[in-house]
Amino acid sequence: MQSGIVSAPSTFRVGGVQYVAFQTGKGGAFPLVAGVAGGATRKVPNLPRLVVLKIGGTVKFPAPPATTTLAWNPPAKIGTPEQIAAGKAHFGRYCQVCHGDSAIGNGFTPDLRVSATLTNADAWKSVILDGALKDRGMVSFARVLTPQDAEAIRAYVIERSNWTKANLSDTAAPMGR
């Protein structure tokens, strides 16, 4: 199917011909909960689509789009161990529900370990506090986080990115198109 199957199949008949339909893509709760343990899911491309198969049909899927492993080049670690611990606590309370354990994402939400904003504190704060990506679903957390809290979260995500590079093979790297 060139991607994960994310729904149960449904079967139906039209004009005496039977079909089976289901959705493909990736996402859901598993990558959010599994964190780095779910690294194998990064190899599966996210190709969201509705697939309808005709029983006895012979049409084949087109070639899947090319995917590449992103370069894993985290910024240098920042912050004290206390700041990283505070960032982890804030991340767990405010970020983990969407970005998953260890900032990995689920295929629909970004893998923060490779975010371009990690290298720029002002860009990071513009997303976290100023709502720079609100049109893409990332709300501002300015009502509950201070600039110091946002920087502590950035230190934690940078630590996670560096930990991944040091401890896991390239198979844990996210996929891009």
Rank of each mutant, 00 (worst) to 15 (best):
M1G: 15
S3F: 00
F61V: 12
P65K: 10
T58E: 14
W72Y: 14
P48Y: 03
K165S: 15
V52C: 14
P65C: 06
G100Y: 02
L50M: 12
G105D: 03
I158P: 00
K26H: 04
V59F: 00
I84R: 10
I84C: 06
G137M: 00
Y94M: 12
A34K: 05
V157T: 04
G35L: 09
K125I: 04
M138D: 11
P174D: 10
A152Q: 05
T69V: 15
S115G: 11
I104W: 00
S161K: 04
I5Q: 10
A142T: 11
F22Y: 09
K88N: 07
P110I: 01
P31H: 08
R49Y: 05
L53I: 15
V36K: 09
P64Y: 05
N46V: 07
A21N: 06
S7L: 05
K54G: 12
M175F: 11
A123L: 11
G105W: 02
E82Q: 13
G4H: 00
M175L: 15
G27C: 07
I55M: 12
A166L: 04
D122C: 06
A155L: 06
G16H: 09
Q148I: 10
R160T: 04
M138Q: 15
R154S: 03
A132F: 07
V52H: 03
P64W: 04
K125S: 13
A76W: 13
R160F: 01
I84Q: 04
I84D: 01
I104P: 02
A89R: 07
S115L: 02
I78V: 10
N120S: 07
I128S: 06
V33K: 15
I104N: 03
P74R: 10
T171C: 13
C98V: 09
L118P: 02
S10P: 02
Q83D: 13
C95W: 01
I104M: 13
V17I: 14
C95N: 03
G28T: 06
N106P: 08
F22K: 03
N106I: 04
P64S: 15
N73M: 14
L168T: 13
R136M: 10
R49K: 13
A150Y: 02
F30L: 14
G56W: 05
L53A: 15
R93S: 11
S161Y: 03
P81R: 09
T80G: 06
I78K: 11
T80D: 10
P48D: 09
K54N: 11
R113C: 09
L145V: 09
